[in-house]
């Protein structure tokens, strides 16, 4: 599927996750964050770049790992991205939705 975000044509899956991370930039992240009703602060961006770094390392993401990241604790993660934090944060970050159950 293709979607026009910020005037750019972006490949996304049926849930709106980017399928090609190289197409992501900060403006795309901002645009997706508006769709999910989140106003991004510097704290959000710190978490997003952590998630992207893990993705680049091909290291699978889970809520347990977020808690141990040293970047953000689980409580703050839920406060920053209420309602399905890992799903929402990865969507804004332009990376795939984690398939973990934990």
């Amino acid at each position: 599927m293709e979607k026009i975000i910020e005037g750019k044509t972006i490949s996304v899956n049926e849930e709106g996750y980017l399928t090609n991370f190289t197409q992501w930039d900060k403006n795309i992240g901002e645009a997706i964050s508006k769709e999910v009703n989140i106003t991004l602060t510097p704290r959000h961006w710190q978490v997003i770049s952590y998630l992207q770094d893990e993705f680049k390392k091909e290291s699978p993401l889970s809520i347990r790992k977020i808690g141990k990241s040293g970047v953000v604790d689980i409580k703050e993660f839920y406060a920053l991205f209420p309602n399905a934090p890992l799903k929402t944060a990865t969507k804004i970050a332009g990376i795939p939705k984690p398939a973990s159950c934990i």
Binding site: I63, Y78, P82, A84, K87, C101, I102
Partner: peptide, 11 residues
């Protein structure tokens, strides 16, 4: 526990 955590993860 997995069911409770999984629920929260889905909002």
């Amino acid at each position: 526990f997995v069911l409770a955590n999984g629920a929260r993860m889905e909002g």
